[in-house]
Every structure is written in C-alpha cells, then in structure tokens.
C-alpha cells in the first residue's frame, strides 16, 4: 500500500471510531429499554437530539461559545456540561416513561408504539419551535485543529476524547448493571417482571432508572455530537436514531455489549461508504444492513437465537 492510502485509512479509522462511539451510546439506550419492557422507544433518537441542544444551550448560557485553550478550565466545563445535560436528559426520559408509556404497560402492543412515535414528534417540533428549523452552530470547546500525529496521519484529540468518553460510560454501565443492587434489579426485571416483583423488586422505579440511564447516555451522545460536528439541527435525531437502532439489532437487541459492538460497526460502514464516495447513500447502506440482519440473523451477532417463532 502506498503511504498516502495508509494515512487516509488511519485517519478514517479514527473517524469511524468516533462516529461509532456516538452510535454505540445511543444504541445502548434502545437496547436497555427494549431489554426491560420490550418496547422500541422511537423517541430515543429525539432524546439524543434534545441532548445536543441542551448542551449547546447550557454552554452558551454559561458563556462559553468558542474553544477553551486552558486544559483545566476545559476539563471543568466539559465535566459540568456532561453532568448537567445527562441529568436533565435522564429526567426527561423518566418523564416520558411516566406519562407516555407507563399508563399503557398492559395495553395492546400497538398503543405504546404509537405514543412513542407521538412523543418523538412532539420533541422534534418543540425543538424546532424553540431554536428554529435551520442548523444551529454549537460551541467548539475542543477544536479539530488540536491534533497529534501517527505516522503521516494526524488525529484530532477530539476523536480520542469522544472515544474515551464512550468507553468510560460503557464500562461504568457494565459495572453498574453487573455489580450493583439496582443493576441486579434491572436484570431480574428484564428476565421476568412478575417474578422480580414477587421477589420485592420495585418494578416502576427499576424501569424508571433504566429510562434515566438510557436517556442520559443518549444525552452524552448528543454532547459529543455537537462538539464533533459543530452544528446541530432538530432533524438529527431521526436518522441517528435509526442508525443506532440498527446497531442495537445488529449486536443483538437487549445485549449491552452487542449494542456497543453494533454501534462501532455502523460507524465503520458509514465512514467506508463516505470514503468510496457514497456519503449521500449512507442511510440506505445502513438500512440494507438492518434488512440483512433481520433476514439472516434476527437475534443479532451476540444475541441468543430465540423468540423468533412465538
């Protein structure tokens, strides 16, 4: 391979990792909610979008609209942004669950799906009315110009930062689900809601916590999306949600590690499509992947092959 190709590939590899990290964070929310109440939360993509807007709003209202050269201030501002945005988003998620899904938990399956799509439209239009229909610039705290070199390729610290954020959050999530009492409650509720209830698990609060975490992760994805792309629009949630859902199905819906894996996979597909000159067609590529997975391995890469026939 000639050096130029190597450079491009290295750079694109890191781009794919970054994009994949964003999709993985969103996919986790889909997979968690599906795992616990078997509902595709159509509003999840919009929660991600709202996250991007809230982060932008928070940053500009505390007075940061450009890059921050001082590393300490930068770290503090970023930490604060994550804390505030993720908390707000978590509560939005819990609110949506409380008012739109919980009353319908025993209704026919169609009902919560319809409210989910309704909620997603409400979120989209509220943001459109709030910030207008055109793209909005987001503060670039860490610009793309801050880079380091690997061979001839130059990699932005921002890429690394986003990847690390995603990994840290995923590890934290795994630990939470695997090691804590609440995590155990979540797993048992996902397995058998009635049995868990009999064992003293508070189903309502467990489901609420699941929505909180899932939405907070989508919020984190929204923050890093804004940092990375520098501009956001009320429509970004729709397509991103679709791609992240594909990621969740690809990994095996209900499976946390699978969702992360699927997210990175979709990131790579998208960058590859852009690299060969079909950037406009990426949604079509991703959709093709979704159909192929559903045809040949509906349980996903890491999922148990069950439940298809019932």
């Amino acid at each position: 391979m000639d050096p130029q190709t190597v450079t491009v590939l290295t750079q694109q590899f890191f781009n794919a990792l970054t994009l994949g990290a964003i999709y993985a964070l969103i996919a986790l929310g889909y997979t968690m909610v599906y795992g616990i109440i078997e509902l595709i939360n159509f509003a999840h993509g919009e929660i991600f979008m709202v996250g991007a807007f809230i982060a932008m709003f928070f940053l500009t209202s505390i007075g940061f609209s450009g890059s921050i050269p001082d590393p300490l201030t930068l770290a503090a501002v970023l930490a604060l942004t994550f804390l505030v945005t993720m908390t707000v988003l978590g509560f939005i998620g819990v609110g949506i669950e409380r008012f739109a899904y919980r009353p319908l938990r025993n209704a026919p399956r169609l009902a919560p799906l319809i409210t989910a799509i309704g909620v997603s439209f409400i979120l989209q239009n509220v943001v459109q009315i709030w910030r207008g229909p055109s793209p909005v610039n987001t503060p670039q705290l860490l610009t793309h110009n801050v880079r380091f070199d690997i061979g001839a390729a130059s990699i932005g610290y921002l890429n690394i930062f986003i990847f690390l954020v995603a990994v840290v959050l995923m590890v934290a999530l795994q630990l939470f689900v695997g090691r804590t009492r609440l995590g155990r409650a979540m797993r048992s509720t996902a397995q058998d809601r009635e049995a868990a209830q009999l064992m003293g698990v508070n189903i309502n609060s467990t489901i609420a916590i699941t929505f909180f975490i899932g939405s907070a992760l989508a919020g984190a994805a929204g923050i890093v999306y804004g940092l990375y792309f520098g501009s956001i629009q009320f429509t970004i949630g729709f397509v991103a949600g679709l791609k992240a859902f594909t990621a969740a199905v690809l990994g095996g819906i209900g499976n946390l590690a699978g969702a992360a894996l699927g997210g990175f996979f979709i990131g790579f597909i998208e960058v590859a499509a852009a690299q060969i000159g079909y950037a406009r067609w990426t949604p079509a590529f991703v959709f093709g992947v979704l159909i192929l997975v559903l045809v040949f391995r509906p349980s996903g890469l890491l999922g148990q092959p069950i439940g298809e026939r019932a």
């Binding site: 599906y34 078997e38 509902l39 595709i40 159509f42 399956r109 169609l110 799906l113 799509i117 729709f238 397509v239 679709l242 859902f245 594909t246 199905v249 949604p283 959709f287 979704l290 159909i291 559903l294 509906p298 439940g307 298809e308």
Partner: peptide, 15 residues
Amino acid sequence: LRGDYLAIVTLGFGE
C-alpha cells in the same frame, strides 16, 4: 419477527 421490528423497518423504508 415481532411486530416492533416492522415498525422500525418501515420507518427506515419511509426514510
């Protein structure tokens, strides 16, 4: 597959 998949696949198709 389960009905939910149809919803999301048609959503994608519509896009």
